[in-house]
Design a protein around this nucleic acid. Sequence first.
DNA 1: CGGGATCCAGTTCGATACTG
DNA 2: CAGTATCGAACTGGATCCCG
Lengths: 232, 232
Amino acid sequence: MPEDRYRQFCPVAMAAEVLCTRWTMVLVRELVAGSTRFNDLRRGVPRMSPTLLSKRLRELEAAGIVRREPIQGESAYPGYELTEAGRDLAPVVEAVGMWGQKWVEAEPSLANLDPGLLMWDMRRNLDPTPMPAKRMVITFRYTDQPEERRHWWLIVEPGAEVDLCSIDPGFDVDLYVETDLRCMTAIWMGLTSVRKEAGRDRLVVTGDDKLAAAIQDWLGLSPFATQRKLSG
Amino acid sequence: MPEDRYRQFCPVAMAAEVLCTRWTMVLVRELVAGSTRFNDLRRGVPRMSPTLLSKRLRELEAAGIVRREPIQGESAYPGYELTEAGRDLAPVVEAVGMWGQKWVEAEPSLANLDPGLLMWDMRRNLDPTPMPAKRMVITFRYTDQPEERRHWWLIVEPGAEVDLCSIDPGFDVDLYVETDLRCMTAIWMGLTSVRKEAGRDRLVVTGDDKLAAAIQDWLGLSPFATQRKLSG
DNA sequence: CGGGATCCAGTTCGATACTG
DNA sequence: CAGTATCGAACTGGATCCCG
């Protein structure tokens, strides 16, 4: 590819050549968030074609941002790990995200909802520490979604990663959350809260009372949810 | 244009839709640095076609980052001014530039030198305060450049913006700086210093002794020159 | 000077299908 | 799971020209 895109000696231009190609910043966000597998990355950027994802990963590798490394106890395929230069992109992603949260109108973005992507993000940010130290299963039901995207299960096993299923894993369910996708997404983004939406009956939580009471504690929000919106 | 590029509700993706299109980050750097005129912006992004520059400016306006505003005492044409959202991009540009300075190899970039761009940047960052309070004229001579890009004049008038000329303005010259373009660019980027290069006879300063002695003080460097390079 | 339009050739991207 | 292949559509760059 033309590595001489801007041909400027300015550091901003030099960095932008690597970082500001289509999808790259979003992909870097996924990497900074910790995904290392091709298919995990795909779930984080579901609208990016695998061809382009593969190409971008090779570019990031050439730029010294990721490194292919076998991951013990996993597939024989090496994963994509951030190098030190890659980990050092965290402040860049943070600055971009904070600006976006503060200044980009959320409405048009809330027209592009995706339950799979939302659940994938929630899975990653869920905090099990305020939960009882046993397996907890939480079901989400998005009343406005078509059957095949309506039901989701988060399975929290003590000491393990949170699991996400879109087909019934068959476990007893400890908590049910029923709402529409837009409402849940707005909560995730910090634009509103569980309490507020429950009060308006746009969200209903049933099941284990303690789990329900602590929902705002274990339900991790978007890393940018703390930044107040100013664009309006 | 397709405003639905990524179709993700994540703030990073929302911001990247606006900021991470081709040339946009570099253009934003120019705006954050203070340029407000179409042709001034062109000097900062000389390899960007005017068509694309115009298009990007309209996109930034639609995104609420710039605003067209008449500038008093100047041309009847309105300039491009940053809005509050636009000024708030300074930390983003800073983060990107710092990362670039730290991690992107400078060598390939030093193959893409441009005396006009370098002088334009130097003009902007020159600090007249350590200079005598009268008109000072400094001539740069880039020994490796073809005749028409070899000679440059910076004219510092107290209380006014620094002027840049590529044709002899006819004033008496207070200081001559003679070197090659690569050396001067490396100094500007903080990869080396005037003292070091003068010691190697790669740079020669003649004229007003006081002005010469203070050169490292008034010769502003790249805003990213303080970040040490680690990519090597 | 300041700002933009047009045309064309070359690149990049998206959608979808497919392989080991 | 981890990617390739393919092809039309969209975007970009360069050159050139235009208008007030």
